[in-house]
Amino acid sequence: MISTLVLVAQETGNSWDLPANIAFGIISVIAIGGALRMVTTNNVVHAALYLLVVLASVAAIYILLGAEFTAVTQVLVYIGAILILLLFGVMLTRAKIGGDEELDYEQRWMGLGVSVLLFVVMAYSLWEEFGSDTRLVGYEPQRTAEVADSVFSTYIVPFEAVSVLLLAALIGAVVVARRD
């Protein structure tokens, strides 16, 4: 699977594309490897660290795609906030730091079968739909100013809705976790 991606990344011979493709190959290998380790490791803290690797490489993918603002937000929000929150969760629930044999559910095979099936279906349909000739051509970094314009004009209503959602989630989290 990974090698396929690397091949895909390298088969386009455009001179301008080559460095990007190499970068993509490296990043994707790191991302997928990290993700696989994350879901298989026996140590909860290690899993959180592998998640960090995945999140960072996804941020790198964003940069590769020219979405710089999203990449920065990814680092700030995901790595800076969500991951820390998750680590707090690990601490507060007193997970075994040294590793735990029973982290996995017994029915691994079922999850594995479903996941493989899902990947086959998705990969097949993606390949059918976009094939190897739908290229990203001449993309340029999308400017942060554009993002800001868009968020505060066209998407102002969803933006406000998201802010209300965050507030609601904040209150909800406090209410749910409160010790009373």
């Binding site: 017994e106 029915q107 095979w109 079922m110 079968g113 479903v114 099936l117 899902l118 279906v121 349909s125």
Partner: peptide, 30 residues
């Protein structure tokens, strides 16, 4: 162990339901 689990169809295990649901949705998509 999973043999033990499967002895009862209605395990109440959300995970199993989720697996079945994902599997069924995937098949439907296919």
């Amino acid at each position: 162990e999973s043999g033990q689990v499967l002895r009862r169809v209605q395990t109440g295990r959300i995970r199993q339901y989720a697996s079945l649901m994902f599997g069924a949705a995937t098949l439907l998509a296919a």
